[in-house]
Design a protein around this nucleic acid. Structure first.
Lengths: 304, 304
DNA sequence: CCCAATTGATGCCTCCACGTTATCAATTCG
DNA sequence: CGAATTGATAACGTGGAGGCATCAATTGGG
């Protein structure tokens, strides 16, 4: 009941309708003329009504045939659009990609990369979600996100990843704080300075980065206050409840009453990576990673 | 080259996508399982990219496969809608029909017939055009219109036609005219009364009807003034430039200063027909004529 | 008025494509 | 570890689509 007829027959019929001639259609289709005659006959038999009025000298469309030709042409166009679209998705030219980024990576080169990727892949739908490095690892493993910009330190073995940037720490202090006038500062000077810092799971990776940096300087930071998101953290710094360490890229976005003082320690830095799940790489994800890699190449050349 | 793949293969693929299983799909399709495997393989080979991820125990859609399944389903639905629509046109359930009607038939049973036809054939597009009987004959022969309501006297041999109503004449006179007080009038009383009447080609049929009616009463009407459309004709009657004869059904639409006086002659009437071109009857036209015929049956029963 | 030419339909033959059965390889349960 | 299920593969047969040759019918020209 109501199954669609063979596409070849429909194509032959359309060709006859366009050419108003079986012979002309057969030439346009590069087949022999009897094939076209039979195809249309079979189609009519299958449908149960006549599509063409033949007068051995002239071929005209039936009303029903005209309607069918018009509608079928649209449907076939939709069909080939479907195939083209799927092909684009298959080769990574189109599709959806869900990208996460952490607070620490947000101020780095990530934003620019996304913008340029979007303009290079106009058929791709890029969704962005803010997510801590720790959360991203789980989201990548469960497939909730396709790629993530996160702290390299958070990456696990099951994830593919690639370092996209190295960042030095800056000390964030209130401008009214005694340390605010310093142009640089050594990490070990902070041994007795109270810190405000995130302590929930969300901050796990970044906190352990700070801890290990402080440990190599010979102390463990004194936690004076805890905050769970960046605005509150900055608020607490403003109120001189403590100081905190952050990536240097945060500077352009700081409120005016907070100073960012570079650390003088040469080896204290952290890396930001783009990470992905090796097991579910869609073509578009591959394209995305390749795009990031290519974006990085000139940067590395400058450094090397 | 972007030709569309075989519909059967696409249907098989959709079935697998729905069932998430080759075996399940094969049962749903009532074919053996290898047929489904091969069909999907051929489809993938034809398209050039994978649609399904097989793990011998679980079948999942590729991103491209998911996109294709979604879009192809829509396209196939459109395709079967096209076929259904064409079938409706073929059996006369749907389609376009262009109907003409003359001034004399406009006030008869035509209007009601059109309304009821429209409600019985909701998928049919009925276009209405006002056209004189004379013009309708040409328009029917050239195929510009499908059917016409016109004076039976205008019908030629090449057209099929069917009488749908018989109408008596009424004399239209100004209410200030001496004859306005009469309740009936005999045709021969009008031998010396000046007429206003249409004289162009458009009025040819109706004028010859009036002429022959008058001739049987023993005179030829005196033409005092000519008018080419109904409002002007009525205007001239109002201004007492003359009287005219018209179908009695016009009465409900007359302006208040014009009286309609029935003729007492028993044999003076004219017939209105529905006419069509025998050579280009679309199914819907056949349905229309059959509908009119059926609408007429009860009327004839009452008369007979 | 008839013959040549063109057009669509038909008969016959071939061959590819699809479907079926039988079987294998791999994974999942009990 | 064996039973069962699932998808892939092999071998085989049949139906349908296309090609060739030909027919029937209409048209146009001499």
């Amino acid at each position: 009941m109501g199954r669609a007829p063979d596409l070849v027959r429909l194509r032959y019929f359309l060709a006859v309708a366009k050419a108003s001639s079986f012979r002309g259609a057969s030439e346009a289709l590069n087949v022999a003329q009897p094939a076209v005659s039979r195809a249309v006959q079979m189609l009519e038999a299958e449908l149960g009504f006549k599509l063409l009025e033949r007068t051995t000298r002239r071929v005209t469309l039936t009303k029903a045939g005209a309607v069918l030709a018009r509608d079928v042409e649209d449907a076939m166009q939709l069909l080939s659009r479907s195939v083209r679209n799927a092909r684009q998705v298959a080769c990574g030219e189109a599709g959806e990609i869900i990208v996460a980024y952490s607070a620490q990576s947000a101020n780095g080169p990530m934003a620019d990369m996304i913008v340029r990727f979007r303009s290079c892949f106009p058929h791709a739908a890029v969704s962005l979600y803010m997510m801590s490095s720790h959360e991203q690892v789980h989201a990548l493993e469960s497939g909730e996100i396709d790629v993530g910009f996160l702290l390299s330190a958070a990456c696990k073995g099951s994830l593919g990843h690639m370092v996209v940037g190295r960042e030095r720490f800056v000390l964030l202090v209130s401008k009214h704080h005694p340390l605010a006038r310093r142009s640089t500062i050594a990490l070990k000077e902070l041994a007795d300075v109270p810190f405000v810092i995130g302590t929930t799971k969300r901050w796990e990776t970044f906190r352990s980065l700070i801890n290990s940096a402080c440990l190599t300087a010979g102390f463990l930071p004194t936690i004076a206050e805890e905050a769970d998101d960046v605005p509150v953290l900055l608020q607490l710094v403003s109120l001189q409840r403590g100081v905190t360490l952050y990536g240097s890229a945060v500077r352009p976005t700081l409120p005016p009453d907070i100073a960012a003082i570079p650390l003088s320690d040469p080896d204290v830095f952290f890396d930001v990576s783009v990470a992905w799940n090796r097991r579910q790489q869609t073509p578009l994800v591959r394209e995305f990673i390749a795009f990031i890699e290519k974006s990085l190449a000139p940067i590395d050349l400058v450094k090397g």
